[in-house]
Design a protein around this nucleic acid. Sequence first.
DNA 1: CTGCCTGATCTTTTT
DNA 2: GATCAGGCAG
Length: 679
Amino acid sequence: MDINREIARLNTRQKEAVMHTEGPLLVLAGAGSGKTRVITTRAAYLLHTGIQSGSVLAVTFTNKAAREMKKRVLSMLNGKKNRRPVISTFHSLCLNILRREIEHLGYRKDFTIYDTSEQLSLLRSILNDIKFHDKSFKVESVLDRISRSKNNIIPLSDKESSGQDDLGIISDVVYPKYHEALKTLNVLDFDDLLLLTLKLFREHPAILENYMERFRYIMVDEYQDTNRVQYDFIKLLAGERKNLCVVGDDDQSIYGWRGANLGNILDFEKDFSGTVVVRLEQNYRSFGHILQAANGVIKNNKKRMDKSLWTAGGAGPRVNIFKAVDGDDEARWVIDRISLIQYEKRISYEAFAIIYRANIFSRPFEEALRRKRIPYSVVGGTSYFDRKEIKDLAAYLKIIANSRDDLSLLRAANTPRRGLGHSAIRKLADFAQDNSISLLEAFMRAGEITGLGTRASGSAIEFAGLISRYSDLFMKNREMGKVFRSLTEEINYRDYIYELYKTPEAAVRRVENLEGFIDSLSHYETEGKSPSLHGFLETLALTDLLKEKEEKTGRGVTLISFHSSKGLEFPVVFIAGVEEDILPHKKSMYLDGAVEEERRLFYVGITRAMKELYITYTDHRVKYGKNAPATPSRFLDEIPDEVIKRLDGTEKTDPKQDEKDANDFFANIQAMLGSRNKN
DNA sequence: CTGCCTGATCTTTTT
DNA sequence: GATCAGGCAG
């Protein structure tokens, strides 16, 4: 594909964004306005104008976005493989920098990364150590506080108005201990990746200078989702040159609750003088009526940059609103409707999505779908619980890669059981402490520990031997997959699985996971340029291999939360449970600005729809076991009357309008089938 | 260790 | 009302 032809296909605004290469640029990209296309074309264009390969940096939040962009840029750069931008997530960009430079901060180079569950077990063990057993505090909330303070995003109101609450006090006590523990374990958490890179840049201007020289053109995707640390990092890297292009949509900022700072995008012009602002308002996704509904809703927000979506396409059918009796009725009605549309119009089930506020609402829809034997897939939820075997084996790999990771060592040492009980572990840990050595070294020297039984010390020594033997093998051997397989065989992990899971089906599934895990290592090894165990563990930490597989297998009707739906599109969308206390959520009503975020959520949901949009709510809904009356969401009133079609007899509809709607819909089936891949 | 009971909680999620 | 974590007894 030729870059000039690509540019010729853009609209005026998009072109403006692509061709404006020097100085700060803010691209306000409305939903469905071809945002990704602009970023990728811009990257390709920059390289085309002769800018050095590797000087163009595009930062995203998710691996999925990064992957998609790489693919598209690559296809535009056909024949010029030597020219390619750096496209990376915040986290993996920082990880790469730290791998190279972290010694300047007094850390070791061979660190490994802890995921959330490992952070939690570390915290639990710290709380145990300080004999803090107050069960009114959840470890999760302590971790949340620590993470917030690491990201420098605790709202002032927390510290000042409410004073220091109890959770804050305990978090303040635990934070330094947690930090210290990570350092001795030679481990970083996700927040550290960003935070330490920022620290590195601040404390070592020469290093920052290096990276500023390297990345001369910076682009940031989903800028409305950046937090304080990310903002500082980008600002520092952009330096005086300020060839910084940020792309985002303040109207789609829905992650304020986890630290995203809407101010970053709203104040961009102020922060970077001379900013050029380009608004992308032409929408290529949805019919006009859907956009009118979206515009009508979002314009009620005070904190936003004024803009409004439009389409060169048709108005399409009106937005359908249905009031159900209760939650079950709502689910039944939605599924009947899906069934009807799919039968009449011969569209595949993949064309439908049901969007809700909280994952718990998927339940009645799942049941109704199952009853009708309609295929579906639920996106999100916490399904990553059932991967114990992955965590077990990852613990082995982690202690092999990082001999200081005591926590992983403990997990590995007892799975499968190796006859090392509480007291033996206690003695080993004390010995390590007294001699200020790592736990693994203590295992090696278990023979020296007085009061440790011969059986226990034998076990410990044997385990330490196993780890060091495999450390060597992983270092030397080029076939890590094979080495790993022999490790799992040596520890009889398969037998352990069969022992653990009574039913054969469960055991078989686990064994499949085990096999899949080994395969993913082999696969990583053959794909990558210079594979290493550390590299594999990084991929594991920064990308969820299992989850990505699930995404691909996603079949049938999609059940999804507002949050997860961002960035996706579906021909026919149902938004369910549009009621007060659900949307806006009950807990958002007291928080300043939170209702506006709820409104954005609704806006995101509406703008997922390409051809048809259905909004449902109920008269009564079962809440906490009680059947309580429900009130339609205040946001419903914000949709202009003329684009609404009531399907519940609340309003008399003009039969002629109905016929017109049906015709519009029919006329667009072709488009619906052929336009899944926009842009 | 396992399984049962009790009580607390009931938004959203990526890396 | 359902679910899950943590406590406690066996």
